[in-house]
Design a protein around this nucleic acid. Structure first.
Lengths: 365, 365
DNA sequence: GTGAAAGCGCTAACAG
DNA sequence: CTGTTAGCGCTTTCAC
């Protein structure tokens, strides 16, 4: 209904008219066939001139439809994610999808995997959601409430698997995030901390909200006071640093902090150290989120690892099965999520590193 | 020419035949119009059954072509990157592209930005490169030699901007990487280091090779010996850790290391510390690559920052202009690349953090 | 050398 | 309620 600002679209027909020739000649020139078709350079130039003059932009869709012979992929699988999310997990999701596709052997050649981005909160504005003209199936991740709300009332034209969140009616793969917030508080309390704090981004997702709520509730139960809430502008290292710098300037500082994402914790480390405090002696830290740097920073960060690999694997399989006609029963996979205890909470660093995701997944077969 | 394993593709026609109905009825049912068209549920079920039986997967391209009315985007801009590359830079590139599109005002609604992935070395296998049936223009990045070789002899059907590498005949935006290798060696030597080492991935890109070569050459000139070459399996933190762990077990260890990517340096930090050595006292480290964690690790990592923001900005603008008919002269943008000296080479950590990329780019206007 | 015509797969009018 | 028809924009025979 919302009629777009109908920009006049230039087609090969228009160019043909402008140049006083036929569409096929134009097409031949534009696809570099002019030598094969022995079109004289005068004509070629005339066509090229008209093309430029009219500011022609080819319609890839039409080309694609026509190009069946030249190996068009039949099945398009997309990952839909927000611009604002940390991207380091994206590559895992893609790899998982790629592997799932490769498993189909022969048929793999017909699949195409890509990523489309939306601004957090504006998933609904992505085109092709309602009529399925962009993909045959999608993994949707990193949505915020507005997007979730849209999804819960929308009917998408293709199978969808949600990654890292739950919305009734959609197949989804997620981690048990309630456990995270509670467990984070318990770890800090067991490490002897009483003045808890939480580093949280301004915009919460389903997962971060759930972690936050459980952490706050558990803190109130166990130490009898709500945690200090430290708000950060986003999820980046920088955001964590700046928020923490403001906090360490105060007199009363907490002694145990839960960061709703690893990146925030990494940034906070520097602010804490610059203030002359020691981790974990003065402040213990707990993170969450599979940031690859978490193992390696000093001291290594106690963090929850959400078995991303397992989630991605499951989501990819689920999606491919759905696209290939598996019944869309309320398929839901919940993977457990465990803390990896490291020195940032006073635990002794395990000498051997955890297995890499790749190895882990192989071992589980 | 390479005829694919012609998988028989099921169309709505096939379903119609199977169900003994017409294509339009099938289409109506599949697009959820059955209530509007008052199709009895018997018929609906018959169609649905046939659809499942034949394992129908809709052709998104055909839908898209038909869906002109429903807001199909006319101009598709893609970022083509490899699965194997670190993805944290991707989001910047996308943001830049998104901003460049938004600048076009009204017309922005006609643009679609997405990302397509290829396996390093197999760019040539991406479909739609030769006939332009996937996008109207692309930023290509994170290629390895094989891909570059393919590009230099191929003729793509759409405008391309290379990001982070140079290939004759293509517009491109890159940093002056030769400077990096040389400068890295000089920084280490000036910090009093004589036994240099370099952490390098097994697979080199144009940029990493150039950094590597310049570092080796400068090392030979200045300290009279080639650096110790430490090979890592990839670019990850983990790869850096494992490679460095092997090295610290040896008797002779270098005292100044250049890591060809920040991630490798971050991983190496832990191995060095675990061996009881101090950074920078025993080993100085230099990285490169805009990893957001580099500022915040302990000690903060001296690293080259390639003004990614400026590069992305330039590449995005270049691409949009080309797609809109700007003359494809040999447009090449080279941005300088500077070291940020921090404590990992014994420099005093600057009290104020560098400006964030966003601020930096605004300031430069 | 060039144009006319067909058709990729799908959906939306429009007749029945 | 259902089928026929047209056409999205492009490329590719096939005639002329």
């Amino acid at each position: 209904m919302t009629r777009q600002a109908e920009v006049a679209v230039v087609t090969v027909q228009d160019i043909a008219r402008e140049a006083g020739l036929s569409a096929s000649s134009v097409s031949a020139v534009l696809s570099g066939q002019h030598v094969k078709r022995r079109i004289p350079s005068v004509t070629v130039n005339r066509i090229l001139a008209a093309t430029r003059k009219l500011r022609y932009v080819p319609n890839v869709t039409a080309r694609s439809l026509r190009a069946k012979a030249s190996g068009t992929k039949q099945v398009v699988l997309s990952v839909l994610t927000s611009y604002e999310a940390p991207v380091f997990l994206l590559s895992q999701t893609l790899h998982a999808l790629d592997r799932a596709v490769a498993q189909r052997g022969e048929a793999a050649a017909n699949y195409l995997v890509n990523v489309e981005f939306f601004h957090a909160g504006r998933l609904s504005q992505l085109s092709g959601l309602a009529d399925g003209h962009r993909c045959n199936g999608a993994i949707i991740t990193n949505t915020i409430d507005l997007d979730d709300h849209f999804l819960s009332s929308a009917k998408l034209a293709f199978p969808v698997v949600l990654l890292g969140r739950r919305i009734p009616g959609y197949p989804g793969v997620s981690a048990r995030t309630e456990m995270v917030g509670r467990s984070a508080a318990e770890i800090l309390v067991r490490a002897g901390r009483r003045k808890l704090g939480v580093l949280q981004p301004t915009v919460l997702t389903q997962a971060t909200r759930s972690r936050f709520a459980a952490f706050v509730a558990t803190a109130e139960q166990t130490v009898g006071a709500p945690p200090m809430i430290i708000t950060c502008e986003g999820l980046s290292e920088r955001a964590g640093y700046e928020a923490m710098r403001r906090v360490v300037a105060l007199n009363t500082v907490c002694d145990g902090i839960f960061a709703l994402s690893d990146g925030l914790a990494i940034g906070a480390y520097l602010a804490i150290k610059q203030s002359g405090r020691i981790i974990p002696d003065d402040i213990a830290m707990v993170g969450v989120g599979d940031n690859p740097a978490s193992h390696y920073i000093d001291p290594p960060l106690t963090a929850f690892e959400s078995a991303e690999e397992a989630q991605n694997e499951a989501a990819a399989q689920l999606l491919i099965n759905l696209v290939n006609g598996a019944p869309e029963e309320n398929l839901t996979v919940e993977v457990p999520i465990f803390p990896v205890l490291r020195e940032s909470t006073g635990h002794i660093h395990e000498p051997s590193l955890p297995q890499s995701p790749a190895k882990r997944s192989k071992a589980s077969k």
